[in-house]
Structures are given as C-alpha cells and as structure tokens.
Design a protein around this nucleic acid. Sequence first.
DNA 1: AGTGAGATGGCCT
DNA 2: GGCCATCTCACTA
Length: 199
Amino acid sequence: MAAAILVQSFFLKDTKKVARDLLGKTLCLKKPRGRGLSRFKIVETEAYLGLEDPACHSFHAKRTERVRSLYLPGGHAYVYLIYGIYNCLNVVTGDETHPEAILIRAIEPLDGNLVEARTSDLKTNGPGKLCRYLGITRAKHDGIALWKKESGLWIEEGERLKASQIVVTKRIGVQNYPGGAADWPLRFHVRANPYVSKT
DNA sequence: AGTGAGATGGCCT
DNA sequence: GGCCATCTCACTA
C-alpha cells in the first residue's frame, strides 16, 4: 500500500503549521536514469514568512528574477543558489499574495539509501549538502510542482510524529535584523534524530 | 574541538 | 565592494 502523495492544498495552510507538519513526511525523488526511487524522511525545516520577515527573500514584497517562484502558489519548489555554490530547496506555501516558503534543512535516507549513507559521512544533514546529494539545482528544479509525480520530486505521507518528538528553535544562519527575526522560533526538527544538521 | 579562510552568484549600497 | 537561509579544509592548541 503506497503512501498518499501530498495534495496542493496541504501547502496552502499557515506556513508555520506546514513547516511543522512536513516533519516525518517522505520526500521522493526519481532517480536520473531507469526506474527507481529515492525516499527520504524530512527531519528539519525552517519557515520564512514572506512580506514581514527580514530574513525572507520576499521581504517587503521584493521581486527579482531569482525569487520569481516564491510568488507561485503553495506546493511549488523554490530553489536558489547561496554563497555562489550551494543550492537550497524550499517548498512554497500560501497563495500568490503570500510569498512564503519552507527551507528543507535536513532529511534522513530511507530504504536502500540508508545503507549507502551509513558507509560514509552524513550527506543529507544540511540544506546545501542535501541538494548536492540529491542533485537538486536551480536550473532543473526551481519552480516545479511538488504535488505531481511527473515533476520527479514530490512529498508523500510518512511517519506520524507525536508533539513531544518535535523541537522548535530559532533559525540557523539568520542575521540580526532589527525586529529580532534571528530569534523567531521558526525552525522545527525531529528530536534526537542523527540526520538533523549541526548547530 | 575550535577558529578562520576560501569558494563565488545574485543582489545590495 | 560587501553581504548572504553554507560547507569544507587547513590550520591552531
């Protein structure tokens, strides 16, 4: 019995709620050639709250070519390049008037990937690392629809977590903007999961 | 085990 | 020219 794919309406709810609810869900990626699927449990997320969030690329409704997909309706991917090298995978939430998103910060390999990952250092415990490991790039994945399997990347129902398994902290790497955005409790992760990024 | 520099695109002043 | 939602490597101690 295959797990149900998340429908687009899942991503249209309150961004903080979606960020928390994504924990335990299964990120699915079609392998490049031939049939086959890589599956990962989402274990760490961060919410970026759009117009009112100085740390968000769409703060004050800023519109540039880079952030175009942030203004798509919820359920699309927003992939951007950081530090000139690393890609970061975000899930857009809200409608077109709410350019908000959730950064996928860490995932846990499932199935066959687990064996592969354990033979060496962790490769999916950070937003830049996991994109490199999955082959996610701005050119290939920015703006794709995550509620359709044709996109090659989608999210399914997964492990149901108890509230006590979820830890909420401030976000990582967010600067000290006026207003205290650096301290907002918008990072969510699975308690004691070894694939959560180092702080 | 902790610190610092380097890589380097896009967007800012 | 300088800052970033990052990561790795090369030092110090």
